[in-house]
Amino acid sequence: MQTVRQNEKFSVKPHRPVCALAAALLVAALASGCADGGGDTPVREQPASPAAGRPGAAAAQAGPAPAVDSRAEERKQQQAARVVAAKKWGLAQVPLAAPEPPAQKPRITTREGFEIDGAEDEDLPPVFTTVPTKERIVFLTMDDGAEKDPELLRMMTELNIPYSAFLSDYEVNDDYGYFAEMQKRGVTLNNHTLNHPYLPGLSAAEQREEICGEQDKIEEHFGKRPALFRPPYGNYNGDTLRIAKSCGVKAVPLWAAEAFPDHMEWREWDQDLHPGDIILTHFRGQSDWDASMADMVRHVMKTVTDKGYAVARLEDYV
């Protein structure tokens, strides 16, 4: 199929000492309350608890101090660092911060029109271009792995922009270390086949080699079997999805838009972004784009931010 386009403070109020009756009668004539010291000094009501910093203050605390919202403070610091990084890397605007991911991931289903005929009763991995969410977030994904630009790693780390990689072994096998470093920085490495073929043109056995073979390669070199798979060119058939499921794939994210250093290509009729849209780009550089990965990031982030969206982490929603 050809594609078309997530104590109460407890304090005991001090009692005034009980005075002897005779003393009470004596001081009554002076219109004075019973003095703590037994003299004629006016009574000063004692505070319920010592002032902070005074002796006994710690003991007077009833229950724990209010908890500090450490996560809110962390996010505040991250955004402040992002302001500095945006200036350093030449972004037109500071990227918006994504909201906290949902406690429960949304239910993903196959997009209408992307189904496999005759497979309605099969529990196949869903194929989709948009994650169901009302948040103004989108997801950035990068395919293949041809360009291994260290500037990209630094830029995305300093800007704290999440992205997901979909790797083809023939493009990455000359430098697994680059993608291992990417993984250390929090990027999930997903499956894009061994050699990037047109899968519907292959036999089931050949598709298995391409899909499950890449699962094996990623597990071997990066220690984890991917749950996400993207078929090359967005093309697949029933064998593709059945084979992908058999070797551990849970979902098949495609894309709703594609990013380049100087423009966006839209897959939707309204030529716009929507909550939950997946954006595709590639690991490319001067030889293909006459521009760098950093140039692509600057352009896609201008588009995303201008439209009032933040970039979120795909794996937090799928």
Rank of each mutant, 00 (worst) to 15 (best):
H196V: 05
A251N: 05
Y233L: 01
R298Y: 15
G238W: 12
R267A: 14
D169E: 13
A244G: 01
V252A: 02
K307R: 15
C212N: 06
V249T: 08
D295H: 08
H192Q: 03
P66S: 02
V300H: 08
L152H: 05
A31K: 09
P275A: 10
Y178A: 08
Q61A: 15
P162H: 11
P253Y: 06
Q2Y: 12
P150M: 02
E74T: 13
I279C: 01
E181D: 09
T133K: 00
E122T: 14
A81R: 08
D272Y: 08
S168L: 04
N160I: 00
S287M: 13
R44G: 05
R5S: 14
G223E: 07
R107N: 10
V187Y: 09
K9E: 11
N173V: 08
Q6H: 08
G118P: 05
A60T: 00
Q104V: 09
N237V: 10
D174K: 06
G248A: 02
L228A: 04
A244K: 07
L30G: 06
T188L: 09
Q215C: 09
A29S: 14
M182E: 11
F10M: 07
G39Y: 08
K302H: 11
P132R: 09
D295P: 01
P261R: 04
Q104H: 04
A256T: 00
V12G: 01
E206Q: 03
R208Q: 15
